[in-house]
């Protein structure tokens, strides 16, 4: 327990130092709140508007989690297809790269035209932003399997499918999880992009929309919302590390072994 507290100390210290510097800058330079609210002002807004922020956060968190799940399912399926069928790789890989260059607002209206003002167009945008790192890391992970390992499975009479299931898939899992971690980091900003670029009927909330509408007149609330997204991204990242510990313990042991 004490070791864990000690491990957290550097991060806590960094946060305290940064907040202190920020507060000092605002006080000493006399920056107006509309330009840069001081940390204490952000904190007090976070508290006074907590129910509004919490309500909007719940919407955004749902989008991130579902969008990421969609990206994972699609990304893994695509990676496996591309790995098992070399012609599929040649057919779709360039398009995957190109898909990352599409400015989301261009397709935002189309998505709403297809699926309406609800959750679905947002999930599609988040998934579009998040699936790419999952596909690339998983494809590389599958391709990086030790060729000697493949030979061994062949002399044990494994079929192509068995070699994939017993050898390649578990071997690629740590890489896929790394991709998921990157996806998660971009997923939160992806939710912001999704909320602010797909047209929404006035009633649809979300932290991204709230921040965008607050940023000019309620700056400290925009900062409070940002702080929540900030913390959410960190929490998701470490939650995923816990998942990795469960589903791919060997990859962590390998990393911790001094070699």
């Amino acid at each position: 327990m004490r070791a864990r507290a000690l491990a957290l100390a550097p991060a806590a210290l960094t946060v305290v130092l940064l907040l202190g510097a920020w507060e000092a800058y605002v006080q000493i330079a006399g920056v107006e709140e509309a330009v840069l609210p001081a940390p204490h002002a952000v904190a007090s807004t976070l508290w006074s508007d907590r129910s509004l922020i919490a309500h909007n956060f719940a919407v955004t968190a749902e989008e991130v989690v579902l969008g990421l799940a969609l990206a994972l399912a699609g990304g893994l399926a695509l990676a496996v297809t591309v790995h098992l069928l070399p012609w599929a790789r040649r057919a779709v890989y360039p398009l995957l790269v190109g898909s990352q260059a599409v400015p989301v607002p261009v397709i935002g209206v189309l998505l709403v035209f297809w699926w309406g003002f609800g959750l679905l167009p947002k999930l599609a945008v988040i998934a579009l932003i998040c699936f790419f790192p999952v596909v690339v890391t998983t494809v590389d992970g599958l391709a990086a399997v030790d060729p000697e390992q493949r030979k061994l499975l062949r002399t044990l009479d494994a079929s192509r499918w068995q070699a994939f299931r017993l050898g390649e898939l578990p071997a690629a899992l740590p890489a896929a999880l790394s991709g998921t971690r990157i996806a998660l980091a971009v997923g939160v900003i992806g939710a912001f992009i999704a909320e602010t670029t797909t047209p929404t009927s006035g009633a649809y909330p979300g932290l991204g929309r709230e921040i965008l509408s607050d940023v000019n007149f309620q700056t400290s609330r925009a900062y409070a919302g940002t702080a929540v997204l900030f913390a959410f991204a960190i929490a998701c990242f470490y939650a995923l590390a816990l998942v990795e510990r469960r589903v791919a313990p060997w990859s962590i042991q390998r990393r911790e072994e001094p070699r």
Binding site: Q149, L152, D157, L166, P170, A248, R254
Partner: peptide, 23 residues
């Protein structure tokens, strides 16, 4: 092979009986 090439995600007995599982 020269290297043992045990699969790190399987237990010792699962590695040893890999051929039987494949069969």
């Amino acid at each position: 092979p020269q290297r043992d090439l045990l699969l790190p995600w399987l237990s010792a007995v699962e590695n040893a009986s890999l051929a039987l599982r494949i069969a």
